[in-house]
Measured scan of single mutants.
Amino acid sequence: KELVLALYDYQEKSPREVTMKKGDILTLLNSTNKDWWKVEVNGRQGAVPAAYVKKL
């Protein structure tokens, strides 16, 4: 499985998103959308802005 690093804090704004903190390591589930990537963090799945994460 592919991992990404959170470059910034992000507070979810809808139920389809997830909150992450700078430095979090997230499991990347889907990166086909260039703006929003689906990730899993702390057992929750949701979208985060692609510009806020970097593939490891």
Score class of each variant (00 low, 15 high):
residue 36 W to Q: 02
residue 20 M to C: 06
residue 23 G to H: 04
residue 8 Y to E: 10
residue 12 E to K: 14
residue 4 V to M: 05
residue 3 L to R: 10
residue 52 Y to H: 06
residue 16 R to Y: 14
residue 26 L to S: 01
residue 38 K to M: 15
residue 49 P to R: 05
residue 37 W to I: 06
residue 14 S to H: 11
residue 16 R to N: 15
residue 52 Y to F: 13
residue 12 E to Q: 14
residue 38 K to G: 08
residue 47 A to K: 13
residue 42 N to Y: 09
residue 37 W to E: 01
residue 42 N to P: 04
residue 1 K to W: 12
residue 2 E to P: 12
residue 8 Y to M: 12
residue 24 D to Q: 14
residue 19 T to G: 09
residue 21 K to P: 00
residue 20 M to L: 09
residue 54 K to S: 10
residue 43 G to K: 04
residue 52 Y to G: 05
residue 13 K to G: 08
residue 34 K to Y: 08
residue 18 V to Y: 05
residue 55 K to M: 12
residue 17 E to T: 09
residue 52 Y to R: 06
residue 42 N to L: 08
residue 14 S to A: 08
residue 48 V to T: 02
residue 2 E to H: 12
residue 14 S to C: 10
residue 20 M to Y: 02
residue 45 Q to D: 06
residue 12 E to P: 15
residue 14 S to V: 05
residue 29 L to V: 12
residue 38 K to C: 15
residue 40 E to N: 04
residue 2 E to M: 14
residue 6 A to E: 01
residue 45 Q to S: 12
residue 16 R to W: 15
residue 41 V to P: 00
residue 45 Q to Y: 10
residue 34 K to C: 12
residue 10 Y to A: 01
residue 15 P to N: 11
residue 6 A to M: 04
residue 14 S to D: 10
residue 43 G to R: 04
residue 28 L to I: 05
residue 12 E to G: 15
residue 47 A to C: 15
residue 11 Q to P: 06
residue 15 P to S: 12
residue 10 Y to G: 00
residue 31 S to H: 09
residue 2 E to K: 10
residue 44 R to M: 07
residue 44 R to N: 06
residue 10 Y to E: 00
residue 54 K to H: 10
residue 2 E to R: 13
residue 44 R to E: 05
residue 38 K to T: 15
residue 23 G to N: 06
residue 29 L to S: 04
residue 1 K to Q: 12
residue 54 K to M: 15
residue 10 Y to C: 03
residue 31 S to N: 09
residue 53 V to H: 02
residue 54 K to W: 10
residue 13 K to P: 05
residue 22 K to L: 06
residue 34 K to N: 12
residue 52 Y to S: 10
residue 6 A to C: 13
residue 22 K to M: 08
residue 8 Y to F: 13
residue 46 G to A: 06
residue 53 V to P: 01
residue 40 E to R: 07
residue 21 K to T: 09
residue 27 T to A: 09
residue 39 V to I: 07
residue 19 T to R: 06
residue 25 I to P: 00
residue 51 A to Y: 10
residue 5 L to V: 15
residue 35 D to L: 14
residue 27 T to H: 10
residue 16 R to E: 14
residue 34 K to E: 11
residue 41 V to T: 11
residue 27 T to L: 14
residue 50 A to F: 03
residue 34 K to Q: 12
residue 14 S to R: 07
residue 25 I to S: 02
residue 1 K to A: 12
residue 28 L to R: 00
residue 55 K to S: 08
residue 33 N to K: 08
residue 23 G to R: 02
residue 19 T to V: 04
residue 48 V to D: 02
residue 46 G to W: 07
residue 38 K to W: 15
residue 24 D to N: 07
residue 43 G to L: 04
residue 37 W to V: 08
residue 21 K to Y: 10
residue 36 W to D: 01
residue 30 N to Y: 08
residue 30 N to I: 08
residue 37 W to T: 03
residue 27 T to N: 08
residue 22 K to H: 06
residue 44 R to Q: 08
residue 56 L to W: 09
residue 51 A to W: 11
residue 55 K to I: 14
residue 18 V to T: 06
residue 4 V to R: 00
residue 7 L to Y: 03
residue 11 Q to E: 14
residue 25 I to Q: 04
residue 35 D to I: 14
residue 47 A to W: 15
residue 24 D to H: 04
residue 42 N to A: 10
residue 25 I to W: 05
residue 4 V to E: 02
residue 19 T to Y: 04
residue 55 K to P: 10
residue 51 A to R: 14
residue 53 V to D: 02
residue 34 K to V: 11
residue 20 M to H: 00
residue 19 T to E: 03
residue 11 Q to W: 13
residue 13 K to E: 08
residue 43 G to Y: 04
residue 43 G to I: 03
residue 32 T to K: 11
residue 53 V to T: 03
residue 42 N to H: 10
residue 34 K to A: 13
residue 35 D to K: 13
residue 16 R to D: 15
residue 56 L to F: 11
residue 7 L to P: 00
residue 2 E to A: 12
residue 1 K to L: 13
residue 31 S to A: 12
residue 55 K to H: 09
residue 47 A to G: 08
residue 45 Q to M: 11
residue 38 K to P: 00
residue 10 Y to R: 02
residue 4 V to H: 02
residue 5 L to G: 02
residue 39 V to Y: 00
residue 23 G to T: 02
residue 3 L to A: 06
residue 8 Y to D: 07
residue 7 L to E: 03
residue 46 G to I: 09
residue 19 T to W: 05
residue 55 K to F: 11
residue 10 Y to H: 03
residue 40 E to G: 05
residue 33 N to L: 08
residue 21 K to H: 10
residue 7 L to D: 01
residue 6 A to W: 03
residue 55 K to D: 03
residue 38 K to L: 15
residue 14 S to K: 07
residue 44 R to K: 12
residue 23 G to C: 08
residue 56 L to A: 04
residue 25 I to C: 08
residue 9 D to K: 03
residue 56 L to M: 10
residue 14 S to N: 13
residue 41 V to M: 13
residue 2 E to V: 14
residue 13 K to W: 05
residue 53 V to A: 02
residue 37 W to A: 04
residue 7 L to W: 04
residue 9 D to V: 03
residue 42 N to I: 04
residue 22 K to A: 13
residue 3 L to D: 03
residue 38 K to N: 12
residue 56 L to C: 14
residue 34 K to T: 11
residue 15 P to G: 10
residue 22 K to I: 06
residue 20 M to W: 03
residue 53 V to F: 06
residue 16 R to A: 13
residue 22 K to C: 08
residue 48 V to K: 01
residue 29 L to M: 08
residue 38 K to F: 15
residue 20 M to R: 00
residue 25 I to M: 06
residue 23 G to D: 05
residue 10 Y to V: 02
residue 45 Q to L: 09
residue 12 E to V: 07
residue 7 L to K: 05
residue 36 W to R: 03
residue 50 A to V: 06
residue 8 Y to P: 01
residue 1 K to Y: 14
residue 54 K to C: 15
residue 49 P to H: 03
residue 19 T to Q: 04
residue 39 V to Q: 00
residue 13 K to R: 14
residue 1 K to V: 13
residue 21 K to L: 08
residue 7 L to M: 10
residue 6 A to L: 04
residue 49 P to V: 02
residue 30 N to K: 07
residue 55 K to T: 09
residue 7 L to C: 12
residue 54 K to R: 13
residue 24 D to A: 08
residue 17 E to G: 14
residue 17 E to Y: 07
residue 41 V to H: 15
residue 5 L to C: 12
residue 24 D to Y: 05
residue 46 G to K: 05
residue 35 D to T: 14
residue 44 R to T: 07
residue 49 P to N: 03
residue 11 Q to V: 14
residue 41 V to I: 15
residue 38 K to D: 15
residue 40 E to H: 05
residue 55 K to G: 04
residue 4 V to T: 01
residue 36 W to A: 03
residue 34 K to P: 14
residue 10 Y to W: 10
